[in-house]
């Protein structure tokens, strides 16, 4: 599974659990406008750490926060490159 699809799949999963109808998950979608709040985004980050072994927020020296879903996915793709985890076909 690519990093991109791993991220999208966790976002969809939390949408189901939180009973939120998510809009189409495009790269320019603002994360906080997606129907998810910071708590649910935090849960996605934790689950991605478990499934991908990556926590780009803590590992990265880049101290900007992702605003769009595209930023968020790139955060993980960059962290994967840095840590040597195969980024899959999304790279």
């Amino acid at each position: 599974m690519s990093i991109r699809s791993a991220v999208i799949s966790q976002v969809q999963q939390i949408g189901i659990e939180a009973k939120k109808d998510l809009p189409p998950l495009t790269d320019d979608l603002a994360l906080l406008d997606s129907g998810l709040d910071s708590l649910t985004i935090a849960i996605v980050v934790t689950r991605l750490e478990d499934t991908l072994g990556l926590d780009p927020f803590t590992e990265s020296d880049d101290i900007s926060y992702p605003v769009t879903l595209g930023d968020f996915i790139r955060f993980y793709e960059n962290a994967a490159k840095l840590s040597g985890v195969a980024p899959g076909e999304a790279s």
Binding site: A30, I41, V67
Partner: peptide, 8 residues
């Protein structure tokens, strides 16, 4: 504040 920084 983290939430604010994630907002457009």
């Amino acid at each position: 504040w983290r939430r604010a920084l994630m907002s457009p």
